[in-house]
């Protein structure tokens, strides 16, 4: 091969993208910047307030400091209630979400209608925020932890159900074939062939959701659905900032704790 032919066949200059592709990529970047600029300009931000924001923040911090340590004793009961709301809500979620997940997974559902029902439940659950669910259930059950439990449950079903349904759709179908070929019934295939494969996902997401639910249930009190949020809301409204800081610290401690528990459990799942 002559050098010229070689050069024609293997050009020395190599580019990952053709000029056309590169231009398109830059156009995309430009588009993202444009969207960001548009969002800021459309939002009607009072820039004046930003000028003394640091002064306000410092003022808030001094009013919060020092946290009123003696107040923490009164927090124990609402704090425990918060954890109970999260835990009970998660337990009820587990019971409801799995049947729904099996309906919503294409490979375990019965027919198109059951699949649609499963998917609909998941989407409906996830499209409403926990606090909004809380508002609805406070209207139904009246204020208190009962409304909180149902709010947590209704939001979590979509989360848990969706992730488990996706795990079911990704199982090793060879195992299902093997169990089917022994003459097992549909329910047995589900129990022996499919469930063990998705159990790690079930455990992992359940604990993860419980962890999220502890954080969510700490604000549910804002709408009267029980837990430490009620106390926090009252303290903020009455400008008792030294109590607010104690509550925030307490919530922070519980969240850290749940994070540890959740991480430890997930590490042990194999």
């Amino acid at each position: 091969m002559t050098p010229l032919k070689h050069a024609a066949k293997h050009p020395e200059i190599w580019r990952r993208f053709s000029p056309r592709q590169a231009l398109l990529r830059y156009a995309c970047y430009l588009g993202i910047v444009a969207v960001a600029v548009w969002s800021v300009s459309a939002m009607d931000i009072t820039w004046f307030f930003l000028l003394d924001a640091h002064v306000q923040a410092l003022d808030m911090a001094t009013r919060m400091w020092p946290p009123e340590a003696g107040y923490s004793r009164k927090l124990l009961t609402p704090l425990i209630e918060t954890i109970h709301i999260a835990t009970l809500g998660t337990v009820v979620t587990v019971l409801v979400a799995f049947p729904v997940a099996f309906l919503a997974a294409r490979n375990t559902t019965f027919n198109a209608l059951t699949w649609f029902i499963g998917r609909f439940i998941l989407v409906a659950s996830r499209s409403v925020n926990t606090v909004v669910w809380g508002l609805l259930f406070v209207a139904i059950f009246g204020p208190g932890p009962m409304a909180g439990i149902w709010a947590i449950t209704f939001r979590s079903i979509g989360f848990l159900g969706k992730l488990v349904a996706e795990a079911i759709e990704e199982i090793d179908t060879g195992v299902v074939e093997a169990i089917e070929s022994t003459g097992a019934s549909r329910l047995q295939v589900l129990w022996i062939g499919i469930l063990p494969q998705v159990l790690p996902v079930i455990y992992g997401t359940t604990v993860y959701r419980w962890d999220i639910n502890i954080r969510e249930s700490s604000v549910l009190g804002f709408v009267g659905a029980g837990g430490i949020g009620i106390v926090l809301y009252a303290a903020i409204n009455q400008f008792r900032w030294q109590e607010v800081s104690v509550i925030l610290l307490a919530v922070f401690a519980v969240v850290i704790l749940s994070e540890f528990v959740s991480a430890a459990v997930r590490r042990r799942i194999t």
């Binding site: 093997a178 022994t182 097992a184 022996i192 063990p196 494969q197």
Partner: peptide, 30 residues
């Protein structure tokens, strides 16, 4: 009829997270 036909696979197709005994007994599911 499937109970009368034992099947063996290239990728073994065992239930990975179950014990050897549970996998053997799954042959009796029918």
């Amino acid at each position: 009829a499937r109970r009368r036909m034992g099947m063996i696979f290239q990728e073994y197709n065992l239930v990975e997270r179950l014990t050897v005994m549970e996998n053997l007994l799954s042959g009796r599911l029918g």
